[in-house]
Amino acid sequence: MPKLMISLDNKILDSNSMVAKRMVDYGVYDRLYIIVPNTIDKFVELSPEVKVWGIGGNKIKQFIKLKKKGEIIIKKYVIDLITTQDPFFTGLLGLILKKKTKINLEIQLHGDFFGNSYYKKSGFKNFIQYFLAKYIVLYNADKIRVVGERIKNNLLELGVNEDKIELRAIEVNKEYIESYQIKTDLKKKYSAYNKIFLSIGRLELVKNIDFLIDIFAEVIKEKKDYLLLVVGSGSQKNILIEKVKMLGLENNIKFEDWTDDHISYIKTCDVVLFPSLSEGYGMVPMEANMAGKKVIMSDVGVANYELKPSENVIILPIDYKERFINEIKKYE
């Protein structure tokens, strides 16, 4: 089936990236024609079955140019399905193309956008996007593909017809994690610390790392040999680093860039912390649990669904500072 995919991830334009390789794998089953916002116009043929067009310009110009390119691709390659990466920018574009061409529209939900108030309250722009997505895009979609049970349940509570929802869970390879050969040993790298608490992922507001810094500021008043290691990149990184410096916490909170060796980090830390405000799934806590590591996380994504509370999995209400502090301090 030839598909038009509207993506936001311009790493697809890098043929050596993991996401590009994943698209090539998908192309074995369906021919993929992908359009994606980019800094400049660019075309890449990842394989005979997977072609990618990067579209440059500001947001408004990109939207107009993406629409035109989508119409051309639909006509030229006889597209059977339009699939979009989110219900907002790409979802609205997909809906416009659906109305113009009468082709079925699939919306992918990788985040739990409608399960709590985070996205609705995070600025006027996001509120408008939230409104359009909830009441127009989802209503007109032919299929909604979700990655977790929590998202599915929240859509059902919104009144979305269950027949429209397809749950396609993210696979976590337990055998790969268990057999992974450690390349970086945090116990050796940070041998001066008694316990190492790991936060790993994108450094964006929704990940709530600012909250984690406040927590650790309290924890180390009693646990001076505890380390919080924050691994990742994102728009908040420099802001977070400056906050740590301002609070004088550089000895107990350290930052590293994202690493492809993240499984080593998970396997050699003591506890994985996951304080997100909202998640569609939560690959990190799933991987940590499969590696036999203790997880302390907020009630988002896989929490209480794919990942149940246990001795090794502590699930706490979102932003519950005192509980997070107490659970971290309890760990000996």
Rank of each mutant, 00 (worst) to 15 (best):
F127I: 01
F127E: 04
I128P: 07
I128L: 15
I128F: 10
I128Y: 05
Q129M: 14
Q129T: 13
Q129Y: 11
Q129F: 09
Y130F: 15
Y130P: 02
Y130Q: 07
Y130C: 02
Y130W: 15
Y130G: 01
F131Q: 02
F131I: 02
F131E: 12
F131Y: 12
L132I: 15
L132S: 06
L132H: 07
L132R: 09
L132T: 14
L132P: 11
A133W: 05
A133G: 02
A133C: 03
A133M: 14
A133K: 09
A133V: 05
K134A: 08
K134F: 09
K134T: 07
Y135E: 15
Y135F: 14
Y135W: 14
I136G: 00
V137S: 00
V137H: 01
V137T: 02
L138A: 01
L138E: 00
Y139M: 03
Y139W: 06
Y139K: 10
Y139Q: 05
N140T: 01
N140D: 12
A141R: 05
A141P: 09
A141C: 10
A141D: 03
D142Q: 07
D142S: 06
D142V: 13
D142I: 13
D142M: 07
D142F: 08
K143S: 15
K143T: 15
K143N: 14
I144S: 10
R145Q: 14
R145A: 10
R145I: 10
V146C: 06
V146W: 01
V146E: 07
V146R: 00
V146S: 04
V146T: 13
V147R: 03
V147L: 12
V147P: 01
V147Q: 10
V147H: 03
V147D: 04
G148E: 01
G148W: 00
E149A: 05
E149H: 03
E149K: 09
E149N: 14
E149M: 10
R150P: 02
R150L: 04
I151H: 00
I151Q: 09
I151L: 02
K152F: 01
K152V: 04
K152G: 06
K152A: 09
K152Y: 01
K152L: 06
N153V: 15
N154R: 12
N154M: 04
N154H: 14
L155R: 08
L155M: 15
L155V: 11
L155S: 09
L155C: 10
L155I: 12
L156D: 01
L156P: 10
L156R: 05
E157H: 09
E157P: 03
E157T: 11
L158F: 09
G159I: 06
G159C: 10
G159V: 11
V160W: 00
V160N: 03
V160T: 03
V160I: 09
V160M: 01
V160Q: 01
V160Y: 00
V160A: 03
